[in-house]
């Protein structure tokens, strides 16, 4: 059970950033009107960030990982969250053993 001071600092930074987004609505109530295009860009933030985080692992690590990412994307069209994770993990283990 260790708590590294540098890690704690990183966690505190993340906590402050998260709370800031959760109370920022206080400053916005009643005066928010985004154009439809700005709204679309705002709505696109979660998928854009998620993809930007995983792209190196999915596209720049090796063929087994890229193949497994494609299979996971296919699974995501019909399976729930955990099913997609199971398909992706099984695929990467199989493909790493084969390729």
């Amino acid at each position: 059970m260790t708590l590294d001071p540098h890690s704690l600092l990183a966690i505190l930074g993340m906590a402050i950033a998260t709370y800031a987004t959760r109370i920022a609505g206080l400053a916005l109530v009643g005066r928010l009107s985004l154009s439809p295009r700005a709204q679309a860009a705002f709505d696109a933030i979660p998928p854009a960030v998620l993809v930007a985080v995983i792209a190196p692992s999915a596209l720049a690590t090796g063929w087994p990982d890229t193949g497994a990412a494609l299979l996971a994307a296919l699974a995501a069209t019909r399976l729930p969250l955990l099913g997609v994770v199971a398909v992706g993990v099984a695929a990467v283990v199989g493909l790493r053993a084969l390729l």
Binding site: D43, P46, V51, S57, A58, A68, A72, A73, P80, V93
Partner: peptide, 24 residues
């Protein structure tokens, strides 16, 4: 056990949850 790939798969599943067609 390929658990390092679980993130990638999980994030792919999450992206699907935010899917809104062509723009996405």
């Amino acid at each position: 056990f390929g658990a390092d790939f679980a993130f990638t798969a999980l994030f792919i599943a999450l992206v699907a949850a935010f899917w809104k067609g062509r723009v996405t």
